[in-house]
């Protein structure tokens, strides 16, 4: 047998015995990031073909949600930082090799874009607020201008939103050190899931039955695509390196993530809503109408949660320890200052 173990205990917080640097803050951030991307895309698409009045909510009112949702995400991202005072350092450098650096700057583009989107649709979307703005001359001027360039704004918004959606996946998939994350498909998966959750959100928010139905159909499509991508991802792992196979074990073993992944994500997060939403098209039902989209949203979060956590547990090396590292807490307790 090969016995390979740490004979000096190592208990570096969040690194030992298992990597645990990122928890719900990052999962939530990635979820809201994806959702934002979806919101912007749908708002922009709707704005682009004004002709069908069906999607009036998404065309005029949806955009307002983007900065709100995104800000929630940014907040949890900030909460995750260990050295918070130095958050401004994201913007004193641009590191082309670092997805996180890209992300930081992409967000800087997203915000103005969403603001423009909102302004360009403020009058139809939120007449009350628009009314106030129109009282001030420059306010009126801004609204005139933005609504004139509504198309152009939408055209800029779509690619930047897609970038955002994909980035939320790339952020993780760029880590060669964490086998489960290290797959090109993660970007696509997170983008699709982001769109699906956005669709679900519209289903919940939109008033017009016609608009709801448009998005139910859209969502069904997206869920089907998502299932395909997930399948590809699993096949990738199954045919990958020894580390990838180990990662796959986590998804298949019960004391790993089997339950969370198969039952809750695949089952309740994708399959059930798929069925429910199909049924919705045929015969409406007040409760089910809510259930479908809610499950989609939960599934969307669960996907991030599982990915973030599982990815950290998959590594190139896992050493056992001869001694019980918990005992080091005794020193941490008594010797905060000295080494």
């Amino acid at each position: 047998m090969l016995e390979e173990l740490l004979v000096t205990p190592r208990f570096n917080p969040k690194v030992d015995p298992l990597l645990g640097i990122w928890t719900w803050e990052i999962s939530v951030y990635l979820f809201f990031g994806g959702l934002t991307a979806g919101i912007i895309v749908f708002a922009a698409l709707a704005a682009l073909n004004k002709k069908d009045a069906v999607r009036s909510f998404s065309a005029n009112s949806l955009a307002l949600w983007a900065p709100i949702v995104l800000s929630l995400g940014m907040t949890t991202l900030f909460l995750d930082l260990e050295h918070k005072l130095f958050v401004f350092r994201f913007y004193t450098a641009f590191v082309p090799t670092s997805p996180m650096s890209w992300g930081a700057w992409i967000l800087m583009i997203i915000y103005p874009v969403t603001i423009l989107q909102i302004l360009s649709t403020l009058r139809p979307g939120y007449p009350l607020i628009a009314g106030f703005v129109d009282r001030i001359s420059i306010g009126r001027w801004v609204l005139d201008l933005t609504s004139r360039y509504q198309r152009e704004i939408a055209i800029v918004a779509i690619p930047s939103a897609v970038a955002l959606g994909i980035y939320t996946g790339i952020l993780l998939s760029a880590f060669n050190a964490r086998p489960f994350w290290n797959s090109g498909l993660l970007g696509v998966l997170f983008l699709v899931s982001g769109l699906s959750t956005a669709a679900a959100m519209v289903i919940l928010l939109a008033k017009e039955k016609a608009e709801k139905h448009w998005y139910v159909r859209m969502d069904i499509g997206l869920i089907l695509v998502e299932l395909v991508v997930v399948a590809l991802l699993l096949i990738n792992l199954a045919t990958g390196s020894e580390q990838h196979l180990k990662a796959l074990e986590y998804l298949t073993s019960l004391n790993g993530y089997a339950l969370a992944f198969w039952v809750f994500f695949i089952g309740l997060g994708l399959m059930v809503p798929l069925v429910v939403e199909f049924r919705e098209l045929v015969k409406e039902h007040r409760v089910l109408a809510l259930l479908g989209p809610i499950l989609v949203l939960l599934g969307g979060y669960l996907l991030r949660h599982i990915t973030v956590n599982l990815g950290q547990e998959t590594a190139w090396q896992d050493y056992r320890m001869e001694h019980n590292p918990q005992l080091l807490e005794r020193v941490k307790l008594n010797y905060k200052t000295e080494n």
Binding site: T8, P9, E322, H323, N324, L327, L328, R330, V331, N334, Y335, E338, N339
Partner: peptide
């Protein structure tokens, strides 16, 4: 010893 304890906090 707080330094050496961190190296071997118990015997096995």
């Amino acid at each position: 010893n707080p330094l050496l304890f961190q190296l071997a906090p118990e015997n096995t």
